[in-house]
Computed example of a mutant assay.
Amino acid sequence: MPISISAIVVGTHLVVAAADGVPAFDISRSCKLDVAATTGPSVDQSLKNCVSDENRARQELVSQWPKFSASSKAQCIPLEGIGGDPSYVSLLTCLQMYLWDR
């Protein structure tokens, strides 16, 4: 089944547009799901720690966003939607690995 050139151009445009700014993730939901997998008396503290880690990672992403290449953003952002809820910590790690690889 051949893919038309216009479909490729449109698809490429969507990836570039998605990489223009730091994506918006629902960290409350992500953290609640992560913490739900744990047990113990410190569930509230675990949730607070998760949200705090995610917020710090997002702040770091915002400040470092221009340093990351468009190709690394195009590789890492879609990975965050695989297998669960996205994470700024995971996205930052992925993008930093591309920086270190240069």
Rank of each mutant, 00 (worst) to 15 (best):
D26H: 06
D26Q: 05
I27E: 07
I27R: 01
I27A: 01
S28F: 04
S28G: 15
S28L: 09
R29I: 05
R29W: 13
R29M: 12
R29H: 14
S30Y: 06
C31P: 02
C31N: 08
C31A: 11
K32F: 05
L33M: 14
V35H: 00
V35Q: 00
A36V: 02
A36G: 11
A37K: 08
T38C: 01
T38D: 01
T39F: 05
P41T: 06
P41H: 00
S42A: 05
V43W: 03
V43Y: 01
V43K: 07
D44S: 07
D44T: 08
Q45M: 04
Q45N: 06
Q45P: 01
S46P: 01
S46H: 06
L47H: 08
L47E: 03
N49W: 00
V51W: 02
S52G: 07
S52Q: 11
D53S: 01
D53H: 04
N55P: 03
R56K: 14
Q59D: 07
E60A: 10
E60P: 04
L61A: 13
V62G: 03
V62Y: 02
Q64C: 05
Q64D: 15
Q64M: 13
W65S: 13
K67F: 10
K67H: 12
K67M: 12
K67W: 03
S69R: 02
A70P: 04
A70Y: 10
S71V: 12
S72Y: 03
S72Q: 07
S72P: 05
S72T: 08
K73N: 09
K73T: 06
A74Y: 04
A74W: 00
Q75R: 12
Q75V: 15
I77H: 09
I77M: 09
L79N: 14
E80R: 14
E80D: 12
E80S: 14
E80T: 09
E80V: 14
G81N: 13
G81Y: 15
I82C: 10
I82N: 09
G83S: 11
D85P: 06
D85M: 12
D85V: 12
P86C: 09
P86K: 11
S87I: 10
Y88F: 12
V89C: 14
V89D: 12
